[in-house]
């Protein structure tokens, strides 16, 4: 356990040296937030007050929470593991006494812990000033929201990990990466809330783990879901967590076996 804690800490420190990157990311996320919020508000006002169950201030809150969580949740992913598989350095990682998935996850948590302040707070502040936010006044949604954010972070990490692990079998993963990224962006509800989708797309999105990666923690934190529904949504997150975790463990096992047999 100590090893993972140290990994998370060193990752936090490493990320904290890229302050300019963090602030420029926050700037860009805030600009996108302004554009997106104004588009959704305009549509809602034309529609006469609500779309997909979102009032104006709720939609704005949705946008700003999404922009704030985008970077901490790691929705852009990291291709570090694929690079190590390609270079053969993965053999070193596998020979360590720590679990491969857990050690990368610990580093991702360290990164997220740093990102939450410089990348997460500015969009929320700007949102509060420009459009106003509707946030819950009781502690419940925040507690459950924290659990849900942690689950979403892990899901987002595992999703990209699966794509990275593909590099055990294919030479170049960029195409798959691209496909995954755009589908995830759309179906996680990052661009527009999934409840705004036409019914067939909503059904499709709900059959994937993607809404659990962003829509769920944002809705819980905003207090849009009551206690029972929130618990059920976290349950769905945990279910997907189990599925993806089993998937990555299988892939790591067969991938490393392939590595041993073929010598990389």
């Amino acid at each position: 356990m100590r090893a993972y804690w140290e990994l998370a800490k060193s990752s936090f420190r490493r990320n904290s040296t890229y302050r300019l990157a963090a602030f420029s990311g926050a700037f860009t996320n805030s600009v996108f937030g302004l554009i997106r919020a104004s588009l959704l508000l305009s549509a809602i006002s034309t529609a006469g007050g609500t779309i997909g169950g979102y009032s104006a201030v709720e939609a704005a809150t949705y946008v700003w929470l999404g922009q704030a969580l985008l970077a901490p949740l790691g929705l852009f992913g990291s291709a570090e593991l694929a690079g190590r598989v390609k270079s053969g350095d993965i053999a070193v990682d596998l020979s360590r006494s720590v679990n491969l998935t857990a050690s990368y996850w610990a580093q991702d948590v360290g990164r997220a812990a740093f990102d939450i302040l410089p990348r997460g707070v500015p969009p929320l502040v700007i949102g509060a000033l420009v459009t106003g936010l509707s946030l819950p006044t009781t502690a419940g949604p925040y507690v459950l929201g924290f659990v849900s954010v942690l689950a979403a972070l892990t899901l987002s990490f595992l999703g990209f990990f699966v794509i990275n692990l593909l590099s055990f079998w294919v030479v170049e993963i960029r195409g798959y990466w691209m496909l995954y990224l755009v589908l995830m962006n759309l179906l996680s509800g990052f661009l527009v809330p999934v409840t705004w989708f036409p019914q067939w797309m909503l059904d499709f999105a709900r059959a994937t783990p993607f809404p659990s990666m962003l829509q769920t923690p944002v809705d819980i934190l905003a207090g849009r879901t009551d206690g029972a529904l929130s618990l059920a949504l976290v349950g769905v997150q945990l279910l997907w967590l189990a599925v993806l975790l089993a998937g990555t463990q299988l892939m790591v096992r067969y991938g490393s076996r392939k590595l041993v047999v073929q010598g990389g």
């Binding site: 588009l39 549509a43 779309i51 036409p198």
Partner: peptide, 9 residues
């Protein structure tokens, strides 16, 4: 996803 909810955007 935005436009199908409104007559004009």
């Amino acid at each position: 996803a935005i436009v199908h909810n409104v007559p004009t955007f």
